[in-house]
Design a protein around this nucleic acid. Structure first.
Lengths: 164, 164
DNA sequence: CGGCTTGGTTGTATAGTACAACTTGAATGA
DNA sequence: TCATTCAAGTTGTACTATACAACCAAGCCG
């Protein structure tokens, strides 16, 4: 296999993956869509943040986040606390239930991934992981994304071509 | 890095990728959604097939495919030919326009991917590609998806449940 | 023939998303 | 101080992708 061909394959496989991802996500955890799951995860690791931060981080419109947040609040998975410093701001926090559900879904996702990767040699797992990190980390630097975040996401950028 | 941790990373990165994918849908090629692109691609490589085949192949409901096909036909990207053998069947074919648009979109996607992967050593590209294929090809045999693979396509299978 | 199966369409409902208009509260600057 | 402008969120509207269920129409089988 040669480099150009490898690029084709990567494109094709990432696209195939992207196309299927959401559909199957909903099937496994009807109670928590992929987006909700991600938002909850972000709240957990950030220890609470504003809706605007989520929007910037995930390159979503603030109205979209507003509605997602409203749904999560309705489901009692998160709660809002008005920032005493600035009454426009609502700091979002996980509730106990939210934390529990998040942990459950995380666990079941983990199981699925583990099963899927069970027969892979450790060396391959490590290399694959590293490649994915490298691929996703390609932020030809930010454009909408303030996101001070540490870990994994640079989001926005790659949105571009990720798929379609 | 150790195997378990690698699995975590793979899960996290694949999820991040999946989450963003659709969001970007339409930004690059408003004229051809991800699904439409995929369907067109399938028609090209299969040289024409039935709506039912597409549905089975991509684990989509037949009604979804029906509407997608209708849209593609309206856009003159594909055409239907009634199978003279069986009047229930409509064999779908790309039109010249369809072939052209598909080629354009493929090319622009290719460019984006190439840019993104430009600085990767060939060896890494090849390994990454191989890992993705392996990951996506995980059909621990069908369970919802009959997809009887009649003639031309095998590669399809993986549609199943890509992630999570 | 009559019933079952298969391919496809249509009605209906839902999720997720964007964009634009609007509200409310803060900050700024003359 | 007050008017302007900015920032955070919400709401109205619209559109896409999707599923499921009800349906129709054409073959097939016994």
């Amino acid at each position: 296999m040669e480099a150009d061909e490898a690029v084709e394959t990567i494109q094709r496989e990432m696209t195939a993956f992207a196309r299927r991802a959401r559909a199957s996500a909903g099937r496994m955890h009807p109670e928590l869509s992929l987006v909700s799951y991600t938002l909850l995860g972000h709240l957990e690791e950030s220890g609470g943040c504003r809706a605007t931060d989520l929007a910037a981080h995930y390159a979503l419109d603030k109205s979209t986040v507003s509605r997602q947040v409203a749904a999560l609040e309705r489901a009692r998975l998160i709660e809002r606390r008005v920032d005493p410093e600035d009454h426009r701001v609502q700091v979002l926090h996980l509730t106990g239930t939210g934390r529990r559900i998040l942990a459950q879904v995380t666990e079941s996702r983990r199981t699925a991934f583990r099963e899927r990767l069970a027969h892979w040699p450790a060396e391959d797992l490590e290399r694959f992981a590293a490649y994915l990190v490298r691929y996703n980390a390609w932020p030809p630097e930010g454009y909408g994304d303030d996101d001070q975040e540490t870990d994994q996401e640079q989001e926005a950028d790659q949105e571009q071509e990720a798929d379609q």
